[in-house]
Amino acid sequence: MVEILEKVQKVFANIKVEEFMNRDVIYVKPDRTVAQVKEILRLKRISGVPVVDDDGNVVGIISIEDIIKSLENGTLHEKVDKHMTARVICLHKDMTLQEVIKQFERYKYGRFPVVDDDGKLVGIVTKNDILAAVATRLGLLYLHDERRKEVLEGDMLNRSLITGEELNKKGADFYFKIDYFDVNLAGIGAAQLKKFLLNKKVNENVVRRVAVATYEAETNVVIHSGSEGELYCFIAEDRIIVRVEDNGKGIENIELAMKEGYSTAPDYVRELGFGAGMGLPNMKRFSDKMVVLSEKGKGVVVEMVFYLN
């Protein structure tokens, strides 16, 4: 990965942001409601939008994290300016690709607004395939065929699929039973886990990433599994492990499910603001390491690691 990063920086280091940014920016005004933003994110299949005032200045950003907070507090009807993140990290249109990569590495955000000399919004930069390849240290891992069956049908689920350490589920630091009967309850477990970790004094940036990734995993269980699910969290000295399991329909094609925008969610679920096809991609984006195990008819196991340092 380091070698790839060095090669990309050497060849493309001086390309300016304005040469590869997306000029067709989706944004909202501060007087929109959080519920309206939730619908925009669903329709546009994105995980966040800048908030811009009448003069074109970026005054905030609202993301899935803020949607989770509103779900937790029952404030979807309130205005965006009450729930947006006001301290926004923006890129200048003259910044180089090398500088952009450093910003992605530093903040772990999925997108950055781009402004001109006057601070006006002129574009947005996301993690496209190239940036994701050089900015993310470890992407998706999954197991095939006999190895996958060995794990799903054996007792290896009592160990971490990533670190190999024993996981005592009965002694998990946090546990939540996922109810799949009401799609509107999706995200309750993630909200409770977020509150639990903050009470444990876990770094807020780590908690933010855990909450977003867990929200996506929990929502997938509710929408796709057709069965109840279980959410476990294990806190170690240097990392947090989140495990989400269900015994439902399973994923027939993981590669296809990993593509952004691909979704098998029914129309009524989409109308509620879910099923935009960003679940697994967002889990991959916000976790440090991820394993997905599944077989048609045998459920899904998602394990994610978040390093505290």
Rank of each mutant, 00 (worst) to 15 (best):
V183W: 08
F174I: 09
V151D: 03
G139I: 13
P266S: 08
E218C: 02
H224G: 06
A257V: 02
R239V: 09
V269F: 07
M156E: 14
M258W: 01
Y232F: 15
E218Y: 01
I188M: 12
R148F: 00
R159I: 04
E153D: 13
K169G: 01
N247R: 15
A265Y: 08
F196D: 10
D173T: 11
N247V: 10
I240C: 11
L231V: 09
G226D: 04
D238T: 13
D155M: 09
A190T: 10
V222Q: 06
R147E: 13
M156T: 07
D246N: 14
E218R: 00
N253W: 00
V212F: 01
G154K: 11
N158V: 12
R209E: 06
E230A: 07
T214A: 01
Y262E: 06
V183P: 06
A172M: 03
A191E: 08
L143M: 14
A265W: 07
G154S: 15
V207I: 09
E245A: 08
Y142L: 01
K259A: 03
N168H: 12
R208C: 05
A211P: 02
V221L: 08
P266F: 09
R159G: 06
R208D: 11
E260V: 09
L157K: 11
Y215A: 03
L198N: 08
G171C: 02
I223E: 05
V183H: 06
I162Q: 03
V269I: 15
E260Y: 04
K169N: 05
I223P: 02
D246T: 11
A265P: 07
V151P: 03
I188T: 14
I240W: 06
A190F: 10
A265I: 11
K201M: 14
E237L: 14
I188Y: 08
D155Y: 12
T163E: 11
T214S: 04
L143C: 02
E255R: 07
K177V: 09
G189I: 02
E153N: 12
G154N: 12
L157V: 13
E146A: 13
V269G: 05
I241Q: 05
L193N: 08
Y215E: 02
L197G: 00
V206S: 04
N253V: 05
R239M: 15
V207W: 07
V244A: 11
N205L: 14
Y180R: 10
I241C: 11
D238L: 11
Y142V: 00
R137D: 13
E245K: 14
E260F: 03
M258Q: 01
D238R: 14
R159L: 09
V242D: 05
G248V: 13
S227L: 05
A236R: 14
I254S: 01
D179R: 08
L140H: 03
